[in-house]
Simulated scan of single mutants.
Amino acid sequence: MAVTIRDVARATGVHVSTVSRTFSAPNLVSTPTRERVMAVAAELGYRPNRAARALTTGRTHNLGLIVSDIANPFFPPLIKAAQAYAREREYHVFVADTDEDPQAEEELIRTLAKQVDGVVLVAPRLTNQAIERLGLELPFVVVNRRVKGLSAVLMDIGHGTELAVEHLAGLGHRRLGLLSGPRGSWSSEQMKRAAAVAAERADLRLTVIGPNAPTERGGIAAATAVRDSGVTAVIAYNDLVAIGLIEGLGELGTEVPADMSVVGVDDTVAGRLNRPKLTTIVMPTPAAGRTAVDLLLQAVDEDGRTAAQATLATDLVVRESTAAAPGVADTGA
Rank of each mutant, 00 (worst) to 15 (best):
A299N: 02
G158Y: 01
I243V: 10
A52H: 04
G264P: 11
G230E: 08
M260R: 12
S188E: 06
G118P: 10
V269T: 13
A81N: 09
R34A: 02
G244S: 00
K277N: 08
P102A: 05
R175D: 05
V282N: 08
G184T: 11
P182D: 01
T12I: 08
A104G: 02
S24P: 01
R87Y: 07
I157D: 10
N212V: 05
T314C: 12
T285R: 14
A292G: 14
D301E: 15
V37L: 10
G64S: 03
E166R: 13
T268S: 15
D303M: 08
P73M: 04
L240V: 03
R87K: 14
K148N: 11
L78D: 03
G170I: 09
L136Y: 02
I235T: 08
R290Y: 09
F74S: 03
T232C: 05
H92V: 06
L204N: 09
A270L: 07
V14N: 10
R183W: 04
T33G: 10
N144A: 03
I5V: 07
I70Q: 01
Q298V: 04
D117Q: 08
A41K: 06
M191N: 12
Y237Q: 04
A39R: 15
F74G: 01
A310S: 14
E88G: 15
E200L: 04
S229N: 11
T322M: 09
P214Y: 00
E90M: 12
S180P: 06
M1Q: 07
I109C: 00
A196R: 12
S68H: 00
T279C: 10
E162G: 15
A333Q: 04
Q83H: 11
L44I: 11
V265S: 13
K277T: 12
T207I: 03
A82H: 00
V142A: 05
K80N: 07
T291V: 14
I79T: 12
Q190N: 13
V120F: 00
R133L: 09
P326W: 06
P182G: 02
T322D: 07
